[in-house]
Amino acid sequence: HYVEVNGKKIQATSAEEAEKIAKKFAKIYNATVLDLGNYYKVT
C-alpha cells in the first residue's frame, strides 16, 4: 500500500495507514483523495 502525492510515492504498512496519510496530505494541499484500489492518489 502506498500514497502518491505530487508524483512521489509514500509507502504505508496498511490500507488504513495509507488512507490516513492520503487524507492528511489532501487536507494540507486542499486536494482530493482518489482510492485506486491498491493505492491512494492525492490530486
Rank of each mutant, 00 (worst) to 15 (best):
N38D: 13
V3A: 04
A18C: 06
I10D: 02
E16M: 09
Q11I: 14
Y40S: 04
E19K: 14
E4A: 03
N30S: 08
N30P: 02
I28N: 06
T32P: 06
E17R: 06
Y39H: 10
A22K: 01
K20R: 13
S14E: 02
Y39S: 06
I21S: 01
T43I: 15
S14V: 01
V3I: 07
L34W: 03
A31F: 08
L36T: 04
I10H: 06
E17V: 08
I21W: 07
N30I: 04
G37S: 05
K24D: 11
L34M: 10
T32A: 10
V5F: 12
A12K: 02
S14F: 01
N30T: 04
G7K: 03
I21K: 02
V33I: 13
K23W: 12
K24S: 11
A12N: 02
K41I: 15
A18F: 04
K41H: 07
Y2M: 04
T43L: 13
T43Y: 12
I21P: 00
K27R: 10
K8Q: 11
H1D: 02
K41M: 10
K9R: 14
E16V: 10
N6A: 07
T43A: 10
G37Y: 05
G7V: 00
K24M: 15
Y39R: 03
D35S: 06
K8R: 14
V33L: 07
Y40F: 14
V3P: 00
V42D: 05
E16R: 11
A15T: 07
I10T: 01
E17Y: 05
V33G: 01
T32G: 06
L36H: 07
E17Q: 11
T32K: 09
F25S: 02
Y2I: 07
L34D: 07
I28M: 15
Y40Q: 04
Y29L: 13
H1Q: 04
K9V: 13
K41P: 05
V42G: 02
Y2P: 00
V3E: 00
G37F: 08
V5S: 00
K20Y: 10
H1P: 09
N6Q: 08
K27I: 11
E19G: 08
E4I: 13
G37H: 04
A18D: 00
K41G: 04
K9W: 12
V5G: 01
E19R: 14
K8Y: 14
K27D: 11
N30R: 08
E17P: 00
L34E: 14
E19L: 15
S14T: 10
K27T: 10
K20W: 12
A12P: 01
F25H: 04
K8G: 05
V3N: 00
E19I: 12
Q11P: 13
V3H: 01
N30K: 09
Y39D: 07
H1L: 07
A12Y: 07
Y39L: 06
Q11A: 12
I28Q: 10
T13N: 13
L34A: 07
N30Q: 09
V3D: 00
Y2W: 15
I28T: 06
V42I: 09
L34G: 02
K27G: 07
A22T: 02
N38E: 12
N30C: 11
Y29G: 05
H1F: 15
A15E: 05
N30G: 14
A22H: 01
K23I: 11
G37I: 07
G7H: 06
K8E: 09
G7Q: 03
Q11W: 15
A26N: 03
L34K: 08
Y2H: 04
E16D: 10
I28G: 04
L36K: 08
G37Q: 06
A31G: 15
A12I: 05
A26G: 07
